[in-house]
Computed example of a mutant assay.
Amino acid sequence: MKVSVVMSVYNAEKYLRQAVDSILNQTFEDFELIMIDDDSSDCSADILQEYKDQDERVILLKNENNLGLTKSLNRGLAIAKGEYIARMDADDISAPERFTKQVDYLDQHPDYSFVSCIGCYINENGNREQLRLFPEANEEIYAMMPKVDAVMHPGVMFRKDDIEKIGNYCEDFRVVQDYDLWFRGMAAGYKFYNIQEPLVLFRRNESYNTRKSKAYRMIDFAVRKKGYRINHIPLHKRIYIVIPLALAYIPPKVMDKLFYVLKGFDPRNKAKEYYQNGKSGTENK
């Protein structure tokens, strides 16, 4: 088995079929899709069961209680048979060629542990909004990581063996578990690459900002603090730890209105010039 896709699902019935179909319709076919129902109270479990009954590539796990994303992902990793692990969220959409491009990159670059991509925001109706940009090269990703999360989690693929060596997702963190994983990967000397093509349509719906509560921001603060320490980040670069503290006091409704204004100050947007120069040439894919 080449790839195991791990998707945790909680009350995602509205967009779930679009997400699952985008995985099952990948041009790359050697994969299993492990879906974990995290004790959903809507029709998500029924939808997942339908897919399991129809496609032998689908493996369905059910949590008796709501465990949260981190523990659910670790449940999926524990049974994954793939050499590579691909992440996917239950409300996003993967481009058909996503796995083909990511598998090709990891196969051709055995010294790299992570490959992700840039994305494109979509709204509740699936209409495209702005690009979600990330730096390309490993050196750029390392340099940006103390400022912001420089790798898109629902678009990532990584080597299962490498992640197991650093302990999979840390269950101390119910959210922001991806940022913690990247920091630990950096501390282990792992390499990252972001394909400069929008291989994931990233859903920004009515709950996007409300999910990022004050508690969420405090965990972000804790993840950064730990990440700075284990990577020996110089003190003058630790100023970015104030970002989640500042965002914690912006009401979700205000954040929603200012979302793209604030994104204009996002250091990840320095990738825009690279992208618009046409090196990837895939904006309409």
Rank of each mutant, 00 (worst) to 15 (best):
L247S: 08
G189S: 08
T100Y: 04
G227L: 11
E139V: 12
K285A: 09
R229F: 14
P267A: 03
L16R: 05
N209S: 05
Y274L: 14
A248M: 07
A187G: 06
A90L: 01
I118S: 01
G167F: 06
M144S: 15
T100H: 11
R211E: 04
C170A: 08
P146F: 06
N277S: 08
C120G: 01
Y169V: 00
K71S: 00
L245R: 03
Y84R: 00
I230T: 07
G119S: 06
K14C: 03
I85G: 08
M152R: 03
D30R: 10
K257V: 00
Y275D: 05
Q49D: 09
G227M: 01
P110S: 11
V115D: 03
D46R: 10
E197S: 15
K101T: 12
D104C: 14
R217A: 12
N74W: 01
A271R: 08
S40G: 03
F265A: 14
D55C: 14
D53C: 11
G167D: 09
L69A: 08
W182N: 11
H232N: 15
G167Y: 03
L60K: 12
I195Y: 08
P234V: 10
K81E: 15
N11A: 07
Q276C: 14
F99R: 04
H232K: 14
K212W: 01
V156H: 01
L181Y: 10
D266Y: 09
V115W: 04
R87T: 12
K52C: 12
G119I: 03
Y274S: 13
V156Y: 00
I36V: 11
D21L: 10
L16H: 11
D89H: 08
Y208L: 04
G126M: 06
E164R: 08
I85T: 09
D46W: 02
S280I: 02
D42S: 00
M152L: 08
P146C: 07
E97L: 14
D149N: 05
Y142R: 10
R87W: 10
R204F: 09
K214E: 14
L60A: 04
R87Q: 08
M218W: 00
R211D: 03
Q276N: 13
R268Q: 06
F31P: 04
